[in-house]
Simulated scan of single mutants.
Amino acid sequence: MNLTDQYFDRAHEIIGERTPEEKKYDNEVLLWLEKTGKIRKAINTANKKHPNEMLQYNEDNIADIQEHYEYLVKPHEDHKEIG
Rank of each mutant, 00 (worst) to 15 (best):
K23Q: 15
A46C: 08
I65T: 07
E34N: 11
G37L: 00
K48M: 12
A11K: 08
A46I: 03
W32I: 00
D26Q: 04
L33D: 03
Q56L: 12
A63C: 02
E59C: 05
L31Y: 05
Y25G: 02
E13Q: 13
H50A: 11
G37M: 05
T19W: 02
I43G: 01
T36A: 04
L55F: 06
E28A: 14
L55M: 07
G37I: 02
R18A: 08
E17D: 08
Q66P: 00
V29Q: 01
Q66A: 08
K41S: 12
E34I: 06
L30N: 12
I39G: 02
N58V: 09
T19M: 07
P51L: 15
V29A: 02
N52D: 15
N61Y: 07
A11T: 10
E59P: 04
A63L: 09
K41P: 01
E17N: 03
I14P: 03
T19Y: 08
R10A: 15
E22M: 09
P20F: 09
Y57C: 04
Y25D: 06
T45S: 10
P51R: 13
D26G: 09
L31T: 07
E28L: 13
I65W: 01
W32K: 01
G16L: 01
K41Y: 10
K38C: 07
E28V: 07
E13T: 05
I15S: 04
K49Q: 14
E28P: 01
T36I: 05
Y57N: 07
H50E: 05
T36F: 03
T19Q: 03
V29F: 03
K48G: 13
N47H: 12
I14S: 02
T36S: 13
I15R: 05
L31D: 06
Q66H: 09
T19I: 08
H12P: 00
E21N: 11
V29T: 06
E59M: 14
G37Q: 00
D60M: 13
K41T: 11
Q66D: 10
E22R: 10
K48Y: 14
E53F: 09
G16S: 00
K49W: 10
E59D: 14
R10G: 12
Y57A: 05
V29Y: 01
Q56K: 15
D60F: 15
I62R: 03
N47P: 08
D64Q: 09
N27R: 10
R40V: 13
E13F: 11
I14L: 06
T19H: 02
K35P: 01
T36Y: 05
Y57V: 07
I62H: 11
I39D: 00
D60T: 14
